[in-house]
Amino acid sequence: MTVIAYAVTALSLLADILGRELFSQGIDGAPRFAVYAAIIAGFLGMSLAAEDDSHIRPQVFDYLVPPLFEKMFSRLADAVSALIYGGLGYLAVGFVRVTYENGDIAPVLDWPIWPVQLVLPYTFFSISLRYLVITVAPSLKRPDTSLGREIR
């Protein structure tokens, strides 16, 4: 899905350029379309990043927890993450609802925007669910790989 979204992003832009330069006829909504594809890819990427724990996590205070409580504390941390992502999901639902009610349309394309925006609550809730699962069943958690992820 993510891969398709990126392919669509690049292809719609390229089609617009080729159409304009070679056939004197660009595609009016192509850049808009590409933007939505890129947003979908970006959010799906966010949940992928969460899936293998590759979001940047500063580990400055990790030493505060005595080894004895390590497992319990790690579960607490996951529960808090589940809670925050759940909260974001809830807010995202509210945001999409207003877009839907106002009938907001995409410039140039004239499509309703809310279906694209559904990727927001989907992403937040799916990440939240994942944290919830590993809070309940920590054995499913992957080893922490967040070291050295600042590389960009």
Partner: peptide, 18 residues
């Protein structure tokens, strides 16, 4: 190979976008 490249890019952006 594009598949793997797109996935790793998505993860990088998953961190940059927010």
């Amino acid at each position: 190979d594009f598949y793997g490249i797109a996935i790793s890019t998505a993860k990088l952006l998953g961190a940059l976008y927010p």
